[in-house]
Design a protein around this nucleic acid. Structure first.
Lengths: 197, 197
DNA sequence: CCGACAATGTTAATGCCTCTAACATTGTCG
DNA sequence: CGACAATGTTAGAGGCATTAACATTGTCGG
């Protein structure tokens, strides 16, 4: 079984330890500050050891991305509407999405940077299933102005754009009191653009 | 003056040549494939030469980003509405923005990755002034549902999100016939979310 | 129970990169 | 025209990714 370190030769749970190390390093230094070598040191292992678990640096980053997607999914699932209002729920989910990006910008970038990732990977969209569910209920209630697919894409794109431009330090997004600002941006998109007012 | 190469010792216009080389390399290999060393080779100069013009790799990338912003600005300015319709113009400008990202994804990423860039840099938003003008006319005509600032942020974010998710290979965005798809996403956002229908 | 094999680590070596230091060549301006 | 600034060059110090060859353990079939 994968257990704790025993002999000090075989680590015992290197794969997971490396992902943990990578998460910390990325959070501290950004993606560029991350290196297989640094992760190895942090896991107390030689620089060549990671290659027993990941084909290359990119593969480790992909594993990190998986963890990130999972966390994003959890955060979105954890959102509860204040008063059963589906539109309000959607807004809160969007804000949670942006909050994730702002709190862990480097991880967010890794998560959504699919260069060198298997195009078939389904993990991504899966994390966003919750948004689809909320929108689905709105559609069922006949409150969508557009198709479910379009609504999904529009919501996702807008929220993603706010997140990206914010962590990219674009002044209009990053300066003022952020949460309020974001509410002002997303609300009219939902009520008017997506949902019948 | 900065002229062409004369003595084969002093290049004559290395700074610009390095930026050009970087643009090509980034387009061909992506940001990761770019290196000061490769740019030096392409410019026919030693690997240490760039340091006479750029403090480090990052500074060259910043210069590249400036060029990118300029090109994006030009593309947006070049957009003309079919029939004097401001909303239609806005949509076309948004599509041009996404098209830029799709045609030159690596450059687009460099442009909007402000890590390690001077936070005071004004070049970015300046390129988007055109969008502000279009929205300004709509506001003057009393057709905005939200403040000019909010409209600007919402439009920018949505368009940016579509661009990013598309080049990041998110299936919902990248698969189908793209231009039409994008129209479907952006139109309801404009007519309903931003502009009074 | 035990030895072979798979799994997982280690060391050593290659090659590329960034960046700095010390030195060379030119252009220009007083 | 000669000194200085600008711009290139070579050499060299670290860092990282990746691979090859070798070492140590775990485990499973006989």
């Amino acid at each position: 079984m994968a257990a704790m370190a025993k002999s000090s030769y075989h680590h015992g749970a290197l794969e997971s330890a490396l992902i943990d190390a990578a998460l910390v390093l990325i959070e501290e230094e950004g993606v560029d500050g991350f290196s297989l070598a640094a992760a190895s040191r942090r896991a107390g292992v030689s620089v060549a050891a990671p290659y027993r678990h990941f084909a290359n640096r990119r593969e480790l980053l992909n594993a990190v991305a998986q963890r990130g997607f999972a966390e994003l999914g959890e955060r979105l699932r954890a959102v509860r509407a204040d008063g059963g209002d589906e539109v309000g729920l959607l807004l809160e989910q969007g804000l949670a999405y942006v909050r994730f990006a702002v709190e862990k910008p480097a991880l967010f970038r890794v998560v959504f940077d699919s260069r060198g990732r298997d195009p078939q990977s389904t993990v991504g969209p899966a994390a966003l299933a919750v948004l689809g569910e909320t929108l689905g209920r709105l559609e069922a209630a006949g409150r969508l102005r557009v198709s479910l697919d379009t609504a999904m894409r529009l919501c996702w794109a807008t929220v993603h754009g706010v997140a990206m431009l914010t962590i990219d330090g674009m002044r209009t997004f990053a300066e003022e009191d952020s949460e309020t600002l974001r509410r002002h941006i997303l609300s009219p998109m939902l009520a008017g653009g997506v949902v019948r007012p």
